[in-house]
Simulated assay, not measured.
Amino acid sequence: MNALAPLIVALLGGIGLAVQPSTNAALGRSIGSVLLAALVSFAVGTVILTGVWLMADRTPLANLRDARPWMFMGGAYGAFFVAAAAFAAPRLGLASMLTIMIAAQVVAAVVIDRFGLIGLPRTPISAVRLAGVGLVLVGAVLIRRG
């Protein structure tokens, strides 16, 4: 695999996360329901992922038996994120909403890394990591005030 592939995928995913809340909020306004907009968003994503899985992967569904129940919670987190973002973006502004969410993600990620939660390797909290967290938090405050 090309060493740039994960970086490019992460960048494209980040762009998608920046566009998604506004798109879902617009759909929510149009149809009168943020929750229905989030459901439609997940339905469209499910159809697309099903097609890609059928064409490119086809890992047997039986493999799902090997997963522990808590491993299925990713869909719940994603559903909450999509609904929360569609709700918050028009009320806070996209930049404020995203920086608040990113700050929360970075703080949670540092804690998850520190304790090696969810099957990830342990990564100590260093002064440099704390400085990075601090800069993200300052950035969120500056965006919100600006």
Rank of each mutant, 00 (worst) to 15 (best):
A5G: 10
A5E: 12
I8H: 02
V9C: 06
V9W: 00
A10F: 03
L11W: 07
L12D: 03
G13S: 06
Q20N: 10
S22T: 14
A25P: 13
A25T: 10
A26Y: 15
L27R: 07
R29I: 08
S33M: 00
L35Y: 13
A37Q: 10
A37V: 12
A38N: 08
L39I: 13
S41G: 02
T46D: 05
L49I: 06
T50M: 07
T50Q: 07
V52D: 08
W53R: 03
W53M: 03
W53F: 10
L54T: 03
A56L: 02
R58M: 08
R65S: 15
R65M: 11
P69K: 14
P69N: 14
W70F: 12
M73D: 12
A76I: 15
G78K: 04
V82R: 06
A84C: 11
A86Q: 13
A88P: 08
P90Y: 12
G93L: 10
M97Q: 08
I100Q: 02
A103T: 15
V106F: 09
V107I: 12
V107K: 02
A108C: 09
A109L: 05
A109P: 07
V110Q: 00
F115H: 14
L117F: 14
I118Y: 08
G119R: 04
G119Q: 00
P121C: 01
T123W: 05
P124T: 01
A127I: 12
G132K: 06
V136W: 06
L137Q: 09
V138A: 10
G139E: 02
G139D: 09
G139W: 01
L142T: 13
I143Y: 02
R144K: 07
R144I: 07
R145I: 05
G146C: 12
